[in-house]
Write a protein that binds this DNA or RNA. Structure first.
Lengths: 262, 262
DNA sequence: CACGCTTTTGCATATATTTGCACGTTTCTT
DNA sequence: AAGAAACGTGCAAATATATGCAAAAGCGTG
């Protein structure tokens, strides 16, 4: 690979991803870290990018073509949201939980996606409004500000009238012993109720949620059908999930569901 | 994640959310609190934000793009919203319709206002979330994008379990002969249902809605208890309203309700 | 093709930065 | 006033960086 070609590639990565990690690119191109660092140093001297410890960033934040709102999410949640969105098949009826990870799922839907999405989060409902082919059904209740979801008896009751294919659930704790857990009792009830209304429940969990037990248990791990994880989740943990009977989905791969009917 | 990238992220959070809690961000990014605190300290030293105990705030309050939308509203709707908000008494349970005028009502609530607000609009629910003392109850249903309100049988059914003091209703047509009307049949049903669940129904109508008949009738004028109008509405029209038995409220005046029990 | 020259690349070493933790202090809450 | 939470500082381990150097590859000239 030519040096100049490589430099152009670096700038392209920067524009496309909004950031660049020297070590990762070096590994990707099969070169030493030093070489990439040298390139970055030179590009920075030429004013083409801003050199930072560990890699580089666009000279001005605005220069990334990323949707500003998308980039506000930590890369990990964005990755999980994208993977989860990819699991939704045309014309399915899915329930989408509240929370930032679920929000990333919404942001990663395709404009031409045709589905019915049920949610008990007004924030998610508002975020869904730009997608013309998606029918949005809201479940009411008492608004719980902390997570911006509706909770309470009314929510559980309203959910009982729904039958969905998949429930995409966010939790704050995923642990083999403690199961799936969250920080609020009412929220746990609602998540459980929603899970019962869907043929499959798929958990979305970024790394900081793993092997953590929150105060209120939603359900044991085995009750879920699958889990979406970050690509770089440790293999032992992925294995644990599989041993609990869950399908494991990570970004990048071709995620064909097997073992469960969608 | 790169250090500088994280700092940009912190600033972005601050701009978008108007505040930042160190601990919450640390958990979200899977880093120690110390690291975030260090970042905030450095950003504060660089004058990029204001450090406060527990997190950070934008350097100048104006820098949050929060209230940006408030100023977009036409003066007339803002005026009507303010007048309507002033009619809400402490601890009342009120139903708030969807739409831009209702949004102005929300924006004009006081931070220390203590009420229960019922709404079938996810947009309104989200807008209400910054008011700590307001209990928000959402009525679910199928999202009708055009007005960002939930409609359909589920909405009407859920409404039937509510008893409120006042319903603040938006309509697209107010006419003595045609009554109160709107542009969508389902929306009309919902408005009617909500009206029946409140002791009083107060209509919010900016000048362009007056003496206009929209396709679907919500109810005759006399069924409403009051109407909020712009200050400079023609006196004959105000008189017509009074003759139909409605209390007329306009901005600036001391709006004491009389003739109807709140 | 041989030769010297330049460029590029990877390595070794020394230096700098980042990060999490421990500990004592300050600030908030009740 | 007491307890909890957040804070700053110093420190050590991990990581990233700059620099000098040498090997390898590319280049032009004769």
């Amino acid at each position: 690979m030519l040096t100049q070609e490589r430099k152009r590639y670096l700038l392209q990565v920067l524009k496309q991803q909004g950031k660049l990690e020297a070590k990762a690119v070096a590994a990707e191109l099969g070169l030493s870290d030093d070489t990439i660092r040298r390139d970055l140093r030179e590009l920075a001297a030429a004013g083409m990018l801003q050199r930072v410890h560990g890699g580089a960033l666009p000279k001005s934040p605005a220069e990334a073509d990323l949707d500003a709102r998308k980039s506000i999410a930590s890369g990990s949640k964005q990755e999980i949201g994208k993977t989860a969105a990819g699991l939704i098949k045309p014309d399915q009826v899915v329930i989408v939980d509240g929370g930032t990870t679920a929000m990333q799922l919404v942001k990663n839907l395709r404009q031409d996606q045709k589905n019915t999405i049920v949610t008990h989060s007004p924030t998610i409902a508002v975020a869904l409004s730009p997608y013309p082919l998606i029918t949005v059904i809201m479940i009411g209740g008492t608004l719980f500000r902390h997570s911006m979801v509706n909770i309470g008896a009314a929510t559980v009751e309203a959910a009982s009238h729904i039958h969905a294919d998949t429930f995409f659930m966010g939790v704050t704790g995923v642990d083999v012993k403690a199961g799936l857990s969250t920080g609020d009792l009412e929220e746990a009830y609602v998540k459980r109720a929603l899970s019962l209304r869907a043929a499959d429940t798929i958990v979305m969990a970024s790394s900081e949620k793993l092997q953590v037990a929150s105060p209120y248990v939603v359900m044991p791990l085995e009750k879920a059908s699958g889990i979406v994880l970050e690509k770089n989740t440790s293999s032992p943990f992925k294995k644990l999930m599989k041993q609990s009977g869950l399908d494991v989905f990570v970004g990048g791969k071709n995620n064909e569901r097997k073992g469960h009917v969608l």
